[in-house]
Amino acid sequence: MLKDKARVMTAQDIERILKRMSHEILERNRGLENMIIVGIQRRGVYLANRLGDILAHFESTRVPSGVLDITLYRDDLTLLHDQPVVHSTSIPEDVNSRKILLVDDVLYTGRTVRAALDALMDLGRPESVQLAVLVDRGHRELPIHPDYIGKTIPTSKSEVIEVRLNELDGKDEVVICEREEG
């Protein structure tokens, strides 16, 4: 059983942070040319959509966005507790020679991102890949570093970061949970 321990982001926090990240993205790339935003299934997808909306609002142009499922690329399936479910991957345009902005909710060991990179490379050869995450909770097991971080939240390994989003969970918040004994 997971038990909520502390709320670390509210809906307003999330909105503010995504806006700030959008500015950083624009600044770093000097615009949105040649970019595709790709969300990692499942919460990464909604965050990617929101970033896309904000960027469209700032720049009055819509960046194509896609969805990446990495289940078949994971190397930690045997450690998961639930039956793996393969979701769909759908990226509307050819990824060859494009700038890919990969979006996920939480960056932890780095294995998800590693799998996402493999999945992405099987679709083509992007010019570059950048990584945006809402929360970086540390404990990396691979040499992976995000380009845009919403918030760095130091955690212990026994804790779980839950990002809840309106589209899936009915509200926006980020909560630190802890496994209850028994």
């Binding site: 078949l72 690329y73 994971r74 399936l77 493999d118 999945a119 099987d122 679709l123 083509g124």
Partner: peptide, 9 residues
């Protein structure tokens, strides 16, 4: 449908 049909699963 993908160019590379092989996945490491």
């Amino acid at each position: 449908d993908r160019p590379i049909k092989k996945v490491p699963a």
